[in-house]
């Protein structure tokens, strides 16, 4: 449980970091390690996806952006999604059901990322921003509250995508992070190589499947820990009765191999306790 409190604390920090604008420091040079609209009245950091689109439109070399994303990716990988991203936290707050949804849709986020880049390149516009539910929540709604926005088509489009995403989150836990988030897709590339990750002790694992039931991303952590869909949130670590899974900083070579190449012999006969 200590892990969960720790995560809630760091997610709180993520939200706090997102609304540092209340201090009046203005926009900084810092790229946010998650999906956070820089149009939000209180944001002081740069949304990587928004920046990416602008750089694609301008045809500029994204060295700074990719360098920062590379550093973020190498440190936590998708751990940022589980531990820091405010929109990920919104996903957690709305996660009432942890459904195993068809896995076939999870690579959709890579298509979203590709589509975002292609739309910026071919249409010279930030189309993802115009649909982004994080922007709906942290920019469109606040501006509407401030009386600056009107009930026009772009605003209603934003409300539509927000409602759709929220509904998705209610039905499928971490719906946005699983299927649609382009930022998650970028960090996913680094997930295997990053220093922060899950470790499985094969001797202790009873293959009971409790971690699978606890995983908000609907994966099997003892088989797919640190895969592109693992947000390293540690719910599986909490759920494991045998402490077979651990989470922390380690050399990536020492852990990924074991979890990923483990053959699947089926559930152990002496599995305790039984799945729900």
């Amino acid at each position: 449980m200590r892990l969960r409190y720790l995560r809630r604390g760091s997610q709180g920090l993520g939200i706090l970091f997102g609304i540092l604008g209340v201090t009046g420091i203005g926009m900084t040079h810092v790229i946010f390690p998650g999906l956070h609209c820089y149009a939000c009245p209180l944001s002081v950091t740069i949304c990587p996806v928004g920046l990416l689109q602008n750089l694609v439109i301008a045809g500029a070399a994204p060295l700074y952006l990719f360098g920062v994303l590379g550093v973020y990716g190498m440190v936590l990988g998708r751990g940022w999604c589980g531990w820091f991203c405010p929109f990920g936290t919104v996903n957690d707050l709305f996660a009432w059901r942890k459904v195993r949804f068809p896995r076939v849709f999870s690579p959709l986020k890579f298509l979203v990322l590709l589509g975002t880049v292609i739309a910026a390149w071919r249409l010279a516009d930030t189309w993802f921003c115009k649909l982004c539910p994080a922007a709906s929540l942290t920019a469109s709604l606040p501006y509407f509250g401030l009386g600056l926005a009107e009930l026009n088509t772009p605003f209603l489009l934003h409300m539509g995508t927000l409602a759709g995403s929220l509904l998705g989150m209610v039905v499928v836990a971490r719906f946005w992070c699983r299927y649609l988030c382009p930022m998650g897709a970028i960090l996913a590339f680094f997930n295997r190589a990053s220093f922060f990750g899950l470790r499985l002790s094969q001797e202790k694992c009873t293959r009971c499947g409790l971690c699978k039931a606890a995983c908000p991303m609907g994966i099997e952590p003892h088989r797919e820990g640190n895969s592109t869909n693992c947000i390293k949130c540690g719910e599986c670590v909490i759920a494991c009765p045998h402490a077979a899974l651990t989470l922390g900083f380690s050399s990536p070579g020492a852990r990924g191999y074991a979890t990923l190449r483990l053959p699947w012999p089926g559930a152990r006969s002496d599995r305790v306790p039984p799945s729900k």
């Binding site: 950091t45 920046l51 750089l55 772009p154 605003f155 209603l156």
Partner: peptide
């Protein structure tokens, strides 16, 4: 990057078409 982020894209957040 900072200059890009300093612009409030009104059509992006639904303030204008």
């Amino acid at each position: 990057a900072q200059r890009i982020a300093q612009v409030l894209c009104t059509s992006c957040v639904g303030l204008a078409e």
